[in-house]
Design a protein around this nucleic acid. Structure first.
Length: 919
DNA sequence: TTTGGCTGCCC
DNA sequence: ATTCTGC
DNA sequence: GCAGAATGGGCAGCCAAA
């Protein structure tokens, strides 16, 4: 019999024919236009409509065997016939004649006749390879007319109730089927942009639809909105206050689908065969053996075997008993072919996956438009095979390992430079000239390596291996050696991207946030779902993998999976804070109507480490702000948490704390990076720097998430907890005016705390969001007038400007100018440009990227605290220094004196300026 | 054995 | 941490 | 308003040079 294999697509090795392969192949049959895997194939067999659909958005030459339906033809030496598959417009099955044997491959198919696809046909075949997305008996779709009637009724009822019906269905195929179904119902469909585009393409090919309009946010009333599933929970839909959302999908026969998709209703209108039709199809084709693909392939094959038909599941994914078919995922989205030139590898090193990755990075770097970046990345990710997808996705966040992976490489600039030098054989001065000239490790790597290496193909899997080996190697020398060995056999572009990942900074104007958006776009899933999954997994690669299989919904918030912190937006004054609340009150939706004045919750802002503690009866973990597990750093707190009565996730701040003695962040820091191996640390650390856990939020209580109840309620639950002695609840003070906020801020400062947190009592806990519900008020301690004594070129886009200034105060005793800190932040690009010019003309000594300058530019520098330090010659250093202003009115004779800075430093707790100089 | 440089992680 | 900038 | 880029001080741990 015809040999059939599976390796990310069905392969017939004797015929050297691939059926819907995921990756570029020499010769392949492409069943329908959902596929985005077409472009790279060298030679394809397709139906005419599919070819035309492809041609319309994938111009360019490739060898195509365009075959009519129902006629036996020869293509590439093979004897084949295409039959309509009924899935979407143009979808085809492939019947292969090999000697006196036949094989029928269905692709995605359905038996019921749809309104926008050719009805399916069939022939007897010896081997049947069939798509079995809905291969469980419970997937039995009701009669189509019945479903359509229900759907129309849903739309009518929704409109009659003054709400907007929203129907979710894939842009290509399903949406047009919906559109046809609404024909004659007296409803006006309004199409989401992507649906609109697809529909227009259908029309170009002669399909006609009922009257519809394009999405217009101001005119949704009375219309039926048709959107792709990804639009659910999107901003576009959020804006429509009164709506009812329905998912149009075969999965809707499952009653839980409504909850899983987060919609109001579901209608099982499917482009796939249901269980009954799958069985019927096997009866029609009368095969001697069956191979099943996608969805419940293993289950369906088992059922067939029970009926006496020889049947086996083909793809490995099927063994996992998914609820969602892989085929739906991988092939659903429609590709954009433009801008893919980058994916064409350099011909010098063909087949290098890593080069393809790097080239995509280059194209993304080249466009400033965010949406374009997202699109480019989505196109790349969508094409990747399941093994490559998680790796490349991770790299686009600039990480060699997942965020939840605690491994660190210990490879920095020094190691990279050493490896670059050895790999390229250039001399030290030349290396430093190049490194200096760019101020960007990646660019320097490119220039250093260009033409100096003997590139070999580098797969993504090998790249992962490289990072793992770099981790394992002990010591900078060993790491540099390892890196050198690899760099010497990479192209310059690949070397550049290896270095970019090592430095943790791709600098292509795209980071985790946009990578999440790209995942959502690539696999047509909701952005919110991607973000939540990424947070819970702590692994964007895995997130992408799950998204590609539409399995994100399986992830749930749970104990010991850290939640991203809710963050606060900084504001400079109490008035500015109050405006945010008072301002929204007038529009009237944030604060309950019964209150005449808005209430805000005030808490002291503690200067410690943000921490999230998860506690069950069996286990306790503490996570840092970046979701790193830091339980080992605070053993006594973890130990005490056992005495809590409940299962909780609490959010708070770990501070250095001892009764009667003010401890600072500085004290706390001494405990921070400590290695925890053994009980001795327990006693020693605790004795050194005693701790307290100040709790200000409760996110989980006895099996239930509290994220989506108001802060007010969460606080109420929190106050009911019995806390161990080293835990304390942050005091909340309600306030009703800017004056009260200011007064409480001053009190917080007197309590030696950093400042004030101002929170909306009605707000939910929004993980990872720095929204308009939490604010922080933190004023500068004081400002110093200082003079710039040295300037440096910056990095990245500040490569060619002197953006980084070292500044000094005057030591009265000796008359010297003593450096006290550095800063760039606070100046606009224009000011930096101006100062660059000035310092270039007033350079005292030029050391390349660093130069001392004539001390004549006076800056007003703000900071939050000042303390003794060996970092600068003044013996003092500033915390959070930033430039307040260029004091053009001052000269070097009127800058602040060292003595004054010392006084500030010596004040207890660095009280605010008003307590110091009396200003 | 001490010290300085490097790295990562807190703010 | 802080701040600015482009989308 | 958000995401990204570019920048600050200071600690502990680790390795390699002194």
């Amino acid at each position: 019999m015809i040999e059939v294999r599976y390796d990310r697509g069905v392969h017939l090795p004797r015929q050297d024919l691939w059926l819907d392969p995921w990756e570029a192949k020499r010769f392949a049959f492409v069943s329908h236009a959902h596929g985005d895997h077409i472009a790279p194939h060298e030679e394809i067999v397709v139906s005419e409509p599919t070819a035309r659909l492809m041609q319309s958005r994938l111009p360019g030459a490739r060898a195509e065997h365009v075959l009519p339906f129902g006629e036996r033809r020869t293509a590439h030496g093979l004897d084949v016939m295409l039959l309509p598959a009924g899935h979407i417009f143009g979808s085809a099955q492939c019947l292969l004649f090999a000697g006196d044997e036949t094989l029928l491959y269905t692709g995605d198919f359905k038996l019921r006749s749809g309104k926008s696809a050719e009805p399916a046909q069939w022939r007897q075949a010896d081997t049947l390879i069939m798509e079995t997305t809905f291969g469980l008996p419970r997937y039995r779709f009701p009669p189509t007319e019945e479903v359509i009637d229900q759907m129309v009724a849903f739309c009518r009822e929704t409109i009659d109730a003054g709400e907007v019906p929203v129907l979710l269905g894939y842009s290509l195929g399903k949406a047009q089927e919906i559109l046809c179904s609404l024909d004659g119902a007296g409803l006006t469909p309004m199409l989401h942009g992507s649906v609109y585009q697809m529909t227009r393409i259908y029309e170009q090919f002669g399909q006609s639809f009922c009257k519809y309009v394009r999405y217009n946010p101001n005119d949704v009333a009375g219309k039926v909105l048709i959107c792709p599933p990804s639009a659910n929970c999107s901003q576009m839909l959020e804006r429509i206050a009164r709506k009812r959302v329905a998912m149009i999908s075969g999965w809707a026969v499952d009653p839980s689908a409504v909850y899983r998709y987060g919609v109001d209703a579901g209608f099982p209108l499917s482009d796939h065969a249901d269980y009954h039709d799958l069985i019927r199809y096997v009866e029609l084709v009368q095969p001697q053996r069956v191979f099943t693909l996608h969805g419940f392939a293993a289950e369906f094959a088992r059922d067939l075997r029970a009926w006496g038909v020889e049947a086996w599941a083909l793809s490995e994914e099927n063994q996992m008993e998914l609820h969602f078919g892989g085929s739906d995922v991988v092939r659903r989205s429609v590709p954009k072919a433009f801008g893919n030139a980058a994916r064409r590898p350099d011909h010098s090193t063909p087949q290098s996956e890593f080069l393809a990755f790097a080239n995509v990075g280059e194209v993304i770097a080249a466009t400033p438009a965010k949406l374009e970046k997202i699109r480019l990345l989505a196109d790349y990710l969508r094409d990747l095979a399941s093994e490559q997808l998680p790796i490349a996705t991770l790299y686009f966040t600039g990480r060699p390992f997942a965020q939840s992976d605690s491994r660190t490489l210990q490879v920095g600039w020094a190691v990279i430079l050493r490896a670059l030098q050895a790999a390229s054989n250039i001399n030290d001065t030349e290396l430093h000239r190049i490194a200096g000239a760019h101020g960007d490790a990646g660019k320097a790597a490119f220039e250093v390596l260009d033409g100096q290496t003997a590139p070999q193909p580098f797969s993504l899997r090998e790249s992962r291996k490289l990072f793992e080996n770099l981790y394992r190697a002990r010591g900078p020398s060993a790491k540099a050696k390892l890196l050198q060995n690899r760099l010497s056999i990479l192209s310059a572009r690949e070397g550049q991207y290896v270095v970019k990942i090592l430095t943790g900074d791709l600098r292509i104007g795209l980071r985790e946030g946009l990578v999440e958006e790209a995942i959502a776009k690539a696999f047509d899933v909701a952005l919110e779902q991607v973000k939540e999954a990424n947070m819970l997994l702590g692994d964007i690669g895995q997130t992408a993998a799950l998204a590609s299989r539409h399995e994100l919904h399986r992830l749930e918030l749970s104990l010991f999976r850290p939640i991203k912190c809710m963050l606060a937006t900084p504001l400079p004054t109490a008035e500015a804070v109050w405006e945010r609340f008072a301002g929204t009150t007038e529009q009237g939706d944030r604060v309950p109507a019964l209150q005449t004045r808005p209430t805000v919750f005030l808490e002291d802002k503690f200067d410690g480490i943000r921490a999230q503690l998860h506690r069950s009866a069996q286990r306790i973990e503490i996570f840092s702000r970046d979701l790193r597990r830091i339980t080992g750093q605070f053993p006594e707190l973890a130990d005490q948490a056992r005495h809590l009565q409940e299962e909780v996730i609490i959010d708070g701040e770990i501070i250095a704390f001892e009764k009667g003695r003010k401890l600072t962040f500085f004290d706390l820091q001494k405990r921070l990076g400590r290695k925890s191996d053994g009980e001795d640390l327990f006693a020693r650390a605790a004795a050194d720097v005693p701790l307290a856990f100040v709790v200000f939020d409760l996110l989980w209580l006895n099996g239930e998430s509290l994220l989506r109840i108001p802060l007010r309620e969460r606080r109420r639950h929190l106050s009911g907890l019995q806390l161990p002695s080293q835990f304390q609840i942050a005091r909340v003070i309600p306030a009703y005016s800017a004056a009260e906020i200011e007064q409480t801020f001053q009190q917080a400062r007197r309590r030696l705390n950093e400042g004030l947190m101002i929170k909306d009592p009605e707000s939910f806990y929004l993980p990872g969001s720095r929204g308009m519900f939490w604010f922080k008020l933190k004023k500068e301690l004081a400002t110093l007038d200082v003079v710039v004594v040295a300037a440096e070129f910056g990095h990245g886009k500040r490569n060619n400007v002197l953006s980084d200034y070292t500044f000094a105060v005057r030591d009265e005793a000796t008359g010297e100018l003593l450096p006290i800190g550095k800063a760039y932040s606070g100046l606009t690009d224009a000011e930096i440009a101006e100062l660059t010019e000035h310092f270039k003309q007033n350079t005292v000594a030029n050391y390349g990227r660093y130069r001392t300058v004539k001390p004549d530019v006076v800056l007003e520098v703000a900071f939050n605290s000042i303390q003794a330090s060996a970092r600068h010659a003044s013996g003092l250093a500033l915390r959070f220094p930033r430039i307040k202003a260029i004091r053009r009115d001052k000269n070097v004779d009127s800058i602040d004196k060292l003595q004054y800075a010392r006084e500030l430093a010596s004040q207890r707790g660095n009280l605010p300026a008003s307590f110091g100089r009396g200003a």
